[in-house]
C-alpha cells in the first residue's frame, strides 16, 4: 500500500479523473465536455481497479464509454445542427451553483478530515473478485438481477417508443 509507484499511479489517475470532471463542467463547448467525460470515465475505471473491483472497471469501460458516452454524443449531434457553429451553452444560477459547489465539497471534506479515522476491516477485498461476483449474482442477488433484465427491456421499448420519428399525429408536416 505504501509502495511509491502505487501511490504515484493512484495520484495520476485521481488527477485525471478530477480535472477532466472539472473540464466537463466548466467548458462552454458541449463537444469538449463530452470528450472530457471520456477521460473521467477511464480515470474512474482505473480507480475501480485500485479498489480491486476489476470486473466493475471493465463493465464501466464497456457500458459507460461504449454505450452512454456514444448516446450522449449522438444527443449532442442530434440537437445541434452541424452548420450551426456555436455549440456553446449558457449558464444560469451561477451564484447559487458556486455556493452549492464550494459548500458541498467543503462540508464533505471537513467531515471526512475532522472526524476520527476510519477503522478498516482486517479482511479487505484482495485480488480478483470476478468469481465472487458470479456466486453473489446467482445466490443473494438473483432477484435484483432478474428485475434488472425486466427494467432494461422496459427501457429499451420505452426509449424506442419515445424517440421514434414518425408520429401518427403529426403527419401533416
Amino acid at each position: 500500500m505504501s509502495n511509491p509507484a502505487y501511490t504515484v499511479i493512484f495520484y495520476l489517475f485521481a488527477a485525471i479523473t478530477v480535472f477532466s470532471a472539472a473540464f466537463v463542467v466548466f467548458s462552454r463547448n458541449v463537444i469538449y465536455s463530452a470528450f472530457s467525460l471520456l477521460f473521467t470515465f477511464f480515470g474512474a475505471a482505473a480507480l475501480y481497479v485500485f479498489l480491486s473491483a476489476d470486473f466493475i472497471a471493465v463493465t464501466q469501460v464497456v457500458v459507460y464509454v461504449g454505450g452512454i458516452l456514444v448516446l450522449l454524443l449522438f444527443g449532442v449531434m442530434f440537437t445541434n445542427s452541424i452548420m450551426q457553429t456555436d455549440l456553446k451553452t449558457d449558464v444560469l444560477n451561477m451564484i447559487p451553483g458556486t455556493v452549492l459547489l464550494v459548500g458541498i465539497i467543503g462540508a464533505i471534506l471537513y467531515t471526512f478530515y475532522s472526524t476520527h479515522s476510519w477503522m478498516p476491516s482486517s479482511t479487505m477485498l484482495q485480488g480478483s473478485i470476478v468469481e465472487r461476483i458470479g456466486f453473489e449474482t446467482m445466490s443473494g442477488y438473483v432477484l435484483p438481477f432478474e428485475m434488472a433484465s425486466i427494467l432494461l427491456l422496459a427501457a429499451l421499448i420505452g426509449a424506442a417508443f419515445l424517440a421514434r420519428f414518425d408520429k401518427p399525429g403529426n403527419n401533416e408536416k
Partner: peptide, 10 residues
C-alpha cells in the same frame, strides 16, 4: 466528493 460537487454544479 469532488465528482459529486462538479455534477451538482452542472
Amino acid at each position: 466528493a469532488f465528482l459529486l460537487g462538479f455534477g451538482l454544479f452542472a
